[in-house]
Amino acid sequence: MEFCPKCKSLMYPKEGEMSCKKCGYVKISETDKTELVSKTSRDNSDVTVLEEDTDIGLPTTNARCPECGHNLAYWWLRQLRSADESETRFFKCTKCQKTWREYD
């Protein structure tokens, strides 16, 4: 990650150069390394919660599962919205594996 020396905004790679979208400053890349930039966008409704057996080792709490009524669930926090808003709490039932979220 590189910042513009003039306006301190984030610079983006473009055709072997680093370019500032705010003030237009352009810097020729000094290294031969290839920059990796994702060209795909992600739908805001897509949230990867947990994949496969990553729930192993998560803390548990007393939380009633809306699916099966079991009272024990894994829990974790994930920042989904802007940084000035609270994190979202996720729960995963230890019995039926149903996942749900809770907002503040």
Rank of each mutant, 00 (worst) to 15 (best):
N71A: 02
C65E: 00
K98I: 08
T40K: 15
S29I: 13
L36Q: 09
P66Q: 03
T94N: 00
T61P: 03
C7R: 10
G24N: 07
M18A: 06
D104C: 00
K95I: 01
T40R: 11
L50A: 13
R81G: 13
E67I: 07
F3T: 12
E2T: 12
A73M: 02
K21R: 13
K92G: 03
C96V: 03
E2C: 11
M1Q: 11
Y25E: 08
K39L: 10
S86E: 09
Y12A: 08
K39P: 04
V49S: 04
V47H: 02
E30C: 08
D84H: 13
L10D: 06
D43P: 03
Y12D: 14
S86K: 12
S19C: 09
G16C: 06
W76M: 02
S9K: 15
C4A: 10
E52R: 12
D53F: 12
E30S: 11
R78C: 00
E85W: 08
D53Q: 13
V47Q: 04
K6Q: 13
K33G: 12
C65S: 02
W75K: 01
K39T: 11
R42A: 08
P59H: 07
T88A: 13
L58D: 01
C65I: 00
V47M: 06
W100V: 03
T61F: 07
K6F: 14
E52M: 14
F91A: 04
E17V: 02
K14A: 06
K98D: 00
R78I: 05
R81T: 07
K27Y: 11
T34W: 12
K27S: 13
A63L: 02
E85I: 11
T31S: 14
E2M: 14
W75D: 02
D84P: 08
L50V: 10
R81F: 12
T31D: 13
K98F: 14
A63Q: 11
E17P: 04
M1F: 10
P59S: 11
P66T: 02
L72V: 00
G69D: 00
G16Y: 06
T99V: 09
L36C: 08
H70C: 05
K8R: 14
D43Y: 07
R89C: 09
K98E: 08
V47I: 11
K92Q: 12
M11F: 06
Y25L: 09
D55F: 09
L72E: 07
K27I: 05
R42W: 05
K8V: 04
N44W: 10
F3R: 13
N71H: 03
F91D: 08
A83V: 13
S38W: 04
T88E: 06
R78Y: 01
W76F: 06
M1R: 15
D104R: 00
G24F: 03
M11E: 09
K22E: 11
G16S: 05
E51V: 07
K6N: 14
E67H: 06
Q79H: 04
S41A: 10
P5H: 09
T61L: 05
E85F: 15
D104K: 01
N71L: 01
D46N: 14
C65N: 01
K33T: 12
S41G: 12
S38P: 04
P5A: 14
E30T: 14
Y103W: 04
P59E: 14
M11S: 06
C23E: 05
D104T: 02
A63M: 07
C93L: 11
W76L: 04
E102M: 03
A73E: 02
F90E: 01
S29C: 08
P5R: 10
C96R: 00
C7A: 06
D84F: 10
